[in-house]
Design a protein around this nucleic acid. Structure first.
Length: 535
DNA sequence: TTTTTGATTGTTGTT
DNA sequence: AACAACAATCAAAAA
């Protein structure tokens, strides 16, 4: 009635290599199961595992191996291949399957776990430890002359690296928090824009995104369950889980430490990869357009590359542009423009989200006929000579209802300039936009309260012909008609961003003004605005 | 709340 | 509609 299974392995510190199952009760069949790998990394203190079993072999700590008599159920002898392969020992695990339903009906099962590099002292001290006083225990035995050497098992790391996880959260990781915030903001826009029943549950996973490292126990589970399942194909997940838990309990601190170290190593790698991933992501300007209603208004495809969006009425709070990212400064996402356009005419909502990274300084904003907004980065961004009052390249907080004025001088904005000189799109009430700026740009925050007639001045005339002075003359940037003065050399034009002006040059989210050879792109929002000057 | 496996179910997108 | 692809779910246990 005994089902006797033996797993042997030559090169693994704990479990690895070939596993040969002997099932006498089933005709003494011999078959292989997938290798079990607890840790294939030689650098990870394999000796700890050995020490663990040395400890277990200590007569003073060992227990009588009469577990089977006491609990009399099934015995699992799980072969453990040690790296040196001097000797094989058998780890006999007794399981009281009274906790389960399937096993209780089965005959006892024994898995032999050959272990190499064990001292002969282990022989005879068969019991490893008592896992659970009432349910399970391990017993160490001798297994001689058994075992077919097979290639080492795939290491957990390998599997980790090749098996992406669908999950995507790392609570302790600040970067991840940032990403989650970003994602949630995306989700809000999408959900508001589309009627999706369950789509919100479906998170688009990025195959390139690093896989979150698994926990210590998960790693152990992954490595162990295969053998258990291999020998008990009919075992339910719950039963396997219990066995794995028992084995985990019996593992000992040293062995657990091996796993913990491995987990830490994996986690470090993950953080590295995640950082690289995020940086890579930020290098890409992302433009997303969500059509709430495919029916386009009377809007005629503008020949102008300038961004044109449907007129926007005050956006619902739920889909308002997000506050400044806390990480705007240090990390990363430099600019973000989200706009919900409602319809000026008819209400065909068209949400356009514009994300501009620090690598993609907006020297030009164009919009295709399809309504896609494209931001062409300036090749050169210089703040040379700009000495803005309170340059806040590192202190902008989301809570700050900051108004941002950004100077962006591009020496290579000719193309952008040309594009902006094209016939302006049709006009729409200026929507309220918010646009965090890249840290590489000069940023000035203006206290929102009270709405100040605060002038932002640039430093004295610059030698660089491309440098531009600008001044907010009066009004609040969030107001509809603030006055802006161009301080470009010899210009001194003061213009009020009036509706008329808007009607002539702006879309609902981007205001473009031409002053001599200076073009201004103003992205305004309820709480802040951004002005980008391009010469 | 997350992870482990794997079967199953349900949703979404494509043909 | 049929199908593929993929996400969600469930189980027990641990972190």
């Amino acid at each position: 009635n005994d089902i006797y299974l033996m797993i042997t392995g030559p090169s693994h510190p704990f479990l690895s290599g070939a596993e040969i199952f002997h099932t006498p009760s089933l005709g003494d069949e011999e078959f292989e199961i997938p290798p079990i790998s607890l840790d294939s990394d030689p650098s990870l203190a394999v000796s700890d595992v050995v020490d663990h079993f040395d400890d277990l072999a200590d007569p003073s700590s060992s227990q009588n191996g009469s577990f089977s008599a006491q609990y009399g159920v099934q015995t699992l002898n799980i072969p453990v291949g040690m790296t040196h392969g001097l000797m094989e020992q058998c780890l006999i695990m007794d399981l009281d399957y009274s906790i389960g339903t399937r096993y209780s009906a089965n005959s006892p099962v024994t898995i032999d776990v050959p272990m190499t590099d064990m001292t002969s002292d282990l022989i005879g001290h068969s019991q490893l430890t008592t896992i659970d006083q009432s349910e399970l225990s391990f017993q160490l035995g001798l297994n001689s002359g058994v075992g077919t050497i097979l290639p080492p098992a795939q290491s957990p790391e390998d599997r980790l690296s090749t098996t992406p996880s669908p999950t995507s959260s790392l609570h302790e990781d600040g970067v991840e928090d940032f990403r989650r915030q970003l994602h949630s903001q995306k989700t809000v826009v999408v959900e508001a824009g589309k009627k999706q029943k369950v789509s919100k549950k479906r998170k688009k996973k990025d195959p390139n995104k690093p896989q979150k490292p698994v926990s210590v126990y998960a790693l152990f589970f992954r490595d162990t369950q295969a053998a258990i399942k291999g020998q008990n194909p009919n075992a339910t997940f719950g039963e396997v889980s219990k066995i794995v838990a028992s084995m985990w309990d019996s593992l000992g601190e040293k062995q657990k430490q091996v796993y913990k170290r491995k987990t830490e190593a994996v986690k470090k790698e993950y953080l590295k990869a995640l950082t690289a991933y995020i940086n890579n992501q930020e290098c890409q300007a992302t433009v997303e357009t969500v059509e709430l209603d495919p029916a386009p208004p009377s809007q005629t495809p503008s020949p102008s590359p300038m961004a044109t969006v449907d007129p926007a009425s005050p956006a619902p709070a739920s889909i308002e542009p997000p506050a400044l990212f806390p990480t705007t400064v240090n990390s990363t996402l430099s600019s973000y423009v989200a706009n919900q356009a409602s319809s000026g005419v008819g209400g065909q909502p068209n949400i356009t989200k514009l994300i501009i990274t620090k690598q993609t300084l907006p020297s030009s904003i164009t919009m295709s006929q399809e309504g896609m907004v494209t931001v062409i980065p300036a090749t050169v961004v210089t703040s040379q000579g700009l000495q803005l009052g309170q340059t806040s390249t590192a202190t902008i907080q989301p809570s700050q209802q900051a108004q941002i004025v950004t100077w962006s001088v591009s020496q290579a904005a000719a193309a952008a300039t040309a594009s902006m000189q094209l016939p302006p799109p049709r006009l729409q009430p200026p929507p309220l936009q918010q646009m965090p700026q890249p840290p590489t740009q000069q940023q000035v925050t203006i206290s929102q309260q009270p709405p100040p007639l605060q002038a932002i001045k640039q430093p004295p005339p610059q030698k660089s012909p491309s440098q531009i002075d600008v001044e907010l003359v009066s009004g609040s940037p969030v107001a509809l008609s603030p006055q802006l003065r161009c301080l470009s050399s010899g210009c001194e034009n003061t213009s009020t961003v009036s509706k008329d002006w808007n009607n002539e040059y702006c879309s609902n989210e981007c205001v473009v003004k031409h002053c001599r050879d200076v073009f201004l792109i103003w992205v305004a929002s309820r709480n802040s605005n951004t002005v980008v000057f391009v010469k």
